[in-house]
């Protein structure tokens, strides 16, 4: 059981900055995120895009902002449960919250902070018959353990960085790799594109452009896919052990919607006094919350997190008085 003061759901910019603000008033934090890396949207969707509206930083790449926020949070030694989705939340007899992830990791804290952004990122699934049937029986959307592909035949579909990167990686591991892409151009790192093209010309992988996987076949496990080439208007079957569709991720609110929180569409309604939800001890900050005048900006999320931790402190230590200290005066006293 992982125990902390503030259990933060979502390791995006807002969740990371919460660690810093909480740390200044000596509250410990642990973050849970469905993605394998901290940073949320900034890491997953637009790491190379510049952000121009962070006060004091005329321009910063999203990925660099995450790096800086991690550095800023580091003195307060946050814990992380990454690659796991917050699933169930229940109140314990002593008034704390017990949160269990989809992989069964248990967390206990007096305060839960939902900084979930747009929700959990889930893979975009192609519209194919029998897709559900073969999930985890040959069809995988996320590569967790590359070793399972050793000596196997693999078909990858997609045209972005993850399709390119895994094609390159698995070309060294799998028996055969076929990359299927519906267009002729890729959206990825130019170097990765070049390397994939080079592997294809050297006959190390097979590259099928203007093509799409259009059917899955097999008994208990996937053993064949149909691949249609639109230009030549023909369909061929190909034996394969795995089909890995990599069409990016799209966010969903996920299990949080069943936690009896007051929602406005996909957002959690909060009180702007302290960004508390309708459930005492649960707060929501950043893109996931909603209140009159809400703006989905990182800088607004930072402000929300700063006010929120003050209220969280008072809930945990009702008898203590909190005096605002300036970092310029007190410095940053690490844990």
């Amino acid at each position: 059981m992982i125990e902390t003061d503030l259990l933060i759901i979502g390791a995006g910019p807002c969740g990371l900055f919460t660690v810093f603000e909480a740390g200044l008033i000596k509250l410990r934090c642990h973050l849970i995120d469905a993605l394998a890396e901290p940073g949320g949207q900034l890491t997953e969707i637009y790491p190379k895009k510049p952000i121009y509206d962070i006060p004091g930083l005329p321009s910063i790449l999203a990925g660099d902002l995450v790096k800086n926020l991690m550095e800023q949070a580091a003195p307060f030694k946050p814990g992380f449960t990454l690659g796991e989705r917050a699933e169930t939340l229940e109140k314990t007899n002593d008034g704390k919250w017990k949160l269990v992830t989809n992989k069964g990791t248990e967390h206990l804290a007096p305060i839960v902070v939902i900084a979930g952004g747009l929700g959990c990122f889930e893979p975009r699934k192609p519209n194919l018959d029998l897709l559900d049937k073969f999930e985890d029986k040959g069809v995988e959307y996320i590569i967790k353990d590359p070793e399972i592909y050793r000596g196997q035949n693999v078909v990858i579909a997609g045209g972005g960085d993850s399709a390119l990167d895994w094609t390159l990686f698995l070309s060294e591991v799998a028996k055969s790799v076929t990359l299927v892409h519906r267009r002729t151009t890729f959206r990825g790192h130019p170097d990765s594109i070049q390397r994939v093209m080079d592997l294809a010309s050297a006959g190390k992988i097979e590259l099928l452009l203007n093509s799409e996987v259009t059917a899955l076949h097999g008994e208990d496990h996937l053993d064949k896919v149909s691949i249609t080439n639109f230009e030549e208007n023909n369909t061929a079957e190909r034996n394969t052990d795995h089909f890995i569709p990599l069409f990016g991720l799209s966010p969903k609110l996920g299990p949080i919607k069943d936690w009896q929180l007051n929602l406005n569409k996909e957002s959690i309604s909060v009180n702007t006094f302290d960004y508390s939800t309708n459930i005492p001890g649960i707060y929501a900050v950043g893109d996931i919350n909603d209140y009159p005048g809400k703006l989905r900006l990182i800088l607004c999320g930072f402000h929300e997190a700063t006010l929120m931790v003050q209220s969280a402190f008072k809930r945990i230590y009702p008898e203590k008085n909190l005096v605002l200290k300036y970092t310029t005066v007190s410095g940053v006293n690490s844990f």
């Binding site: 192609p126 519209n127 997609g158 045209g159 267009r183 890729f186 959206r187 069409f247 990016g248 799209s250």
Partner: peptide, 10 residues
């Protein structure tokens, strides 16, 4: 174009 492709809309 790439985004429409990823979302199966191209």
């Amino acid at each position: 174009e790439a985004m429409l492709d990823d979302a199966f809309l191209l």
